[in-house]
Structures are given as structure tokens and as C-alpha cells.
């Protein structure tokens, strides 16, 4: 049983994940996996059919997935966006800001630590894919 940390209320998608390459031939596929070296923009033509996009984090140092997530959210994707792989508890707040709303981490994530870290900062300096208002917006309205 894979442990999914999920920040969504809708039912989880249980369709098998297909590769980006396989997607063009499968008009009924609803879940896709994006490897860290693949171009998130290759998925843009398929966003309407997709319910789940899983983005690979082969190591915690590989930050390409943060840009992938923002690009997908900026293009209007509202389905489940999952970070999978070497995802560390202290990275999840930034990933949330970039638009990820589910996580499958290689190492177990301590729920209490995660809750604390998600609630630690009341303010952010820059807009991202989440709803948080940057402090310049709070300063100037």
C-alpha cells in the first residue's frame, strides 16, 4: 500500500499512469507520469482529459519539478498534481506553493512535522501557484 499524502477532497484517481510518450496514442488515459527531464509543456494539449499528473523527483536536489508544476498550474490544470520520489518533509511547503497537491515520498513523512512546517510561515514574498498573497500586495492593497 503506497502512502499518498493528499490535499484534495475529490476521489483519488486509480487509473494506471502512462508515460508522456504513450499519451498521444491513448485518448482515454487520465493519468500521466512526467519524468524530471521531460517538458511539462508537452502535456498542455492533453490537460482537459487528465485527472492526475505525477511529477518525478529522482533526488531531492533535482528542482525541475517545481517549474513543471508551476507551468501546469499556469496553463490552468486543476486536476491532481503529485510529487513522487525523493520528496523531503521540509520541501513540501514549497511544493505546495508551486501547485502540488499530493505527495508520494520514498521516506516516511512525519505528519506532525509536516503540519508544523506547513503552518509556520504566515507570509510570503512572492506570488506563486497557491492563493497566498505576497506581502507587497498586503502593503499596497
Amino acid at each position: 500500500m503506497v502512502d499518498v499524502i493528499r490535499f484534495r477532497d475529490d476521489a483519488a484517481n486509480d487509473q494506471p499512469l502512462v508515460s508522456v510518450e504513450a499519451l498521444s496514442g491513448q485518448t482515454n488515459a487520465t493519468a500521466v507520469r512526467l519524468e524530471s527531464d521531460e517538458d511539462a509543456r508537452a502535456l498542455l494539449p492533453y490537460l482537459n482529459q487528465l485527472a492526475l499528473i505525477e511529477v518525478a523527483f529522482p533526488t531531492f536536489r533535482d528542482g525541475r519539478g517545481y517549474s513543471a508544476a508551476r507551468i501546469l498550474r499556469e496553463a490552468g490544470f486543476t486536476g491532481e498534481l503529485r510529487a513522487q520520489g525523493d520528496v523531503l518533509v521540509d520541501q513540501i511547503p514549497s511544493m505546495r506553493r508551486c501547485g502540488f497537491d499530493s505527495f508520494i515520498a520514498n521516506a516516511p513523512v512525519d505528519q506532525a512535522t509536516l503540519d508544523k512546517s506547513l503552518n509556520r510561515y504566515d507570509h510570503v514574498y512572492q506570488p506563486a501557484a497557491d492563493a497566498a498573497l505576497p506581502v507587497w500586495k498586503l502593503r499596497h492593497g
Binding site: R61, G63, Y66, P93, S94, M95, Q126, A128
Partner: peptide, 10 residues
Amino acid sequence: WSTFHPEFSY
């Protein structure tokens, strides 16, 4: 702007 930038920390 760069402090805790969520996209550019890795």
C-alpha cells in the same frame, strides 16, 4: 523576491 522563492530553491 528571492527569499524562500518556491520555484528556485533547488
